[in-house]
Structures are given as structure tokens and as C-alpha cells.
Nucleic acid binder design. Structure first.
Lengths: 189, 189
DNA sequence: GTCTATATATGGATAGAC
DNA sequence: GTCTATCCATATATAGAC
């Protein structure tokens, strides 16, 4: 028996939808997430996601608006120099992705790679890989930056998308000790 | 104007469907691939994929039947000892994945990770990670095996799914030189 | 063995009542 | 601002004609 009219708690259906969408996209990816499922999880009518955001894709984009972009994080990291950057990168990365608030949108993007592959390729090349390449001082800087991206991408995919053990529940210290030197070698080795 | 009856070339609709399905699944992933698209690519009627394989999922499984399983490849690799295994692993890996015949099913699985995540997790842990862990002689063998998996997973995802440059078109020599030592350190470092 | 026709289901989106 | 009802497109799967 459903009520009609504004919700009891201030009528914040829009915010509830956005929050639920973040979780659903992060858990199931873009294609497998339905607007109806989002509405159900948000406790609102099935027509409201479309009403507020226009389309499924627009809602998806809306969930990706982050307080800090990945590019800015990398800039901040590289600003401290390449000394010990390998371990710092691993720790910084895990801190962001393990935080539900900041991590969920990133996981959602990664899970949606099949349906948004082209957009993701461009983003990674322009916003991530290019920054590392610019910071690396070597003839094969671009390829080395690619190596960094591959190791980072593999870590987050295994830990946050596929939940492969023991990677999924390893501590930040363990991963920093094991993967830090690898990234350091790609950056300066 | 469509014909009726058996195809001119020996009526091998089943094989044509299987071949087309391999390509479609590898290119678009499981969810985004439709039976109709497979039938169209195979040049057969839209009802035949269901007729021959029963369901979309059964057809997907049928495309994954490989001449050699990843587990056997790893066994063969590790049988030669851990000496220089890092570089050998990279080269062996690229040889298989770059081969259209053997690589397409693997790419299809990787692309379909979102819709078959649980199955993939189990497979990787049991068939891939466990084998490396058994071969590594160290207290943290399992975590080290996880590191190997993460680097390999990142490489194939970047190169074959997202097509991130310069990883997508780097030569086997370049990648072996750059990533080989990383895997070697995880295995024996 | 192949094709037509269709049952069935699902999801995105919208018009209009309340 | 919220909800009902529905349109429309698409997709899997199957029954039965040829």
C-alpha cells in the first residue's frame, strides 16, 4: 500500500535515487543495472529516476561527479617527487578506493567498462597515463607509464571488481610492500 | 530474399554460429551480445542459435571450450622451473592472447566479467592463482601469487579489452623486458 | 534442417491524473 | 512532486509450418 505525495523525510527523492544509483552501478555495472532496481533500492516510484535525470545514461554520469578527480590526485602525488612515489601511489590509491563515498563511483566505472569501453580508453590515456608519462624521465616514458597503468588497473580490478583473494582483503601495508617497488621501478628504475 | 533449406556450403550452420559467437562475445561481451546479432554475423536465421545450443548461456559456454586450458599452460610454464619464469610468462601469455583462435575466447570471458563475476573469481583463484602459489617458495606465497595475477590481469585488460596505448600495440620484446622482471620478483624475489 | 510467427518478458521512457 | 498506466523497443525462446 503505497503513499502518495511527498515522502515523509523532506521529499528528498532525488538524493535517494542518486545514492541508490551509485551503489547499484558499482555493484552490477551499467548494463545490468535497471532504473526500476534503482527506484526500488531508493524506495521511490519507478518513474522518478527518469523524471529527475531524464535518461539512464544521464543518471550514470550524474553519479560520477566526484569531489576530486583521479587526475588531480595523481598531480598531488607526483608533486612530491618520484622519490618513494611507488609506495605512496599504492597507499593513496587504496585509501581512495576503500572509501565507500569516493570508491563507489570509481568501481562503477570499472564495472561498466564493457558498455563504455571507448570513453574509458580515452579517459585513461588522457587523464592518467599521460600524467605519468610526463613525470617519467626516460626514453620509453610512455611505455613505462603504460606499465604503471597496467599494474594499477590489475590491482583495482582484482580487488574491487572480481574480489579475488587474497588481494581483496590484503592490508594496505602488505600491498604497499609488494607492489610499491614494482611501480617505483616503472617510474624511475 | 532468403533461401530455404540447407545452406549451399554443406549446411554447417552450427559451426558458423559458433565462430560468429566467439567473435561477438569477444568484441562486445556477454550482455551486449544478442543472439540475433550472432545469427546475422553467421548468415543464418535468428532462430538457429537457440535451436542448436538451447540458450544464450549454453552457447557462451560452448565458445569457451579451448584446446588448451589456462591451467595447463601455467603448469607447462612452471615445469621449466622459476628461473627466468617472469619473462617466459609474459611471452607465453602474449603469444596465446595475440592468436585470434586461442585469444578470442579468453577476451570474451574477460569482457563478460561483470555478468559472470562470481564464476570468474572462482576460476582465477582455483585454476590460476593456486598454481602460482604452489610454485612459490615463500611465507607469503599466496599474496605473491595474487600480485602475479594482478599484473597479468592488468596487462590483458589494458591491451585486449580497453586497447590502451601504447600497451595495445607494444611488441612482445618491449613488454617482456618491462614486465618480466616484475613477475620474476613476485615469484622469486 | 530451416524458417515464420509468436509467446513471453523486460526495460527505458513519457503522458497525464492526482 | 509523486504515481498510474502505458507505449515502444528489444530480446530470449519455442511451436509448428515447410
Amino acid at each position: 500500500m503505497k503513499r502518495r505525495g511527498p515522502r515523509a523525510n523532506g521529499g528528498e527523492a532525488r538524493e535517494a535515487i542518486l545514492q541508490a544509483a551509485r551503489e547499484q552501478f558499482a555493484t552490477h555495472g551499467y548494463a545490468a543495472t535497471t532504473l526500476r532496481a534503482i527506484a526500488r533500492a531508493a524506495g521511490v516510484d519507478a518513474a522518478l529516476p527518469s523524471y529527475y535525470f531524464g535518461s539512464k545514461n544521464a543518471l550514470f554520469v550524474a553519479t560520477l561527479q566526484l569531489p576530486v578527480t583521479p587526475g588531480e590526485i595523481i598531480d598531488g602525488l607526483l608533486a612530491d617527487g618520484l622519490d618513494g612515489a611507488g609506495e605512496r601511489l599504492v597507499r593513496r590509491l587504496l585509501a581512495v578506493w576503500d572509501d565507500p563515498e569516493r570508491g563507489a563511483p570509481l568501481i562503477a566505472v570499472l564495472r561498466s567498462a564493457p558498455s563504455h569501453g571507448e570513453a574509458m580508453r580515452e579517459f585513461v590515456e588522457r587523464e592518467i597515463l599521460a600524467r605519468f608519462a610526463a613525470a617519467i624521465d626516460a626514453p620509453d616514458a610512455t611505455l613505462r607509464a603504460g606499465a604503471v597503468v597496467s599494474q594499477v588497473l590489475g590491482l583495482v580490478t582484482a580487488r574491487y571488481v572480481l574480489h579475488i583473494e587474497p588481494l581483496a582483503s590484503a592490508s594496505h601495508d602488505e600491498l604497499a610492500a609488494l607492489l610499491g617497488p614494482t611501480l617505483q621501478r616503472y617510474l624511475t628504475g
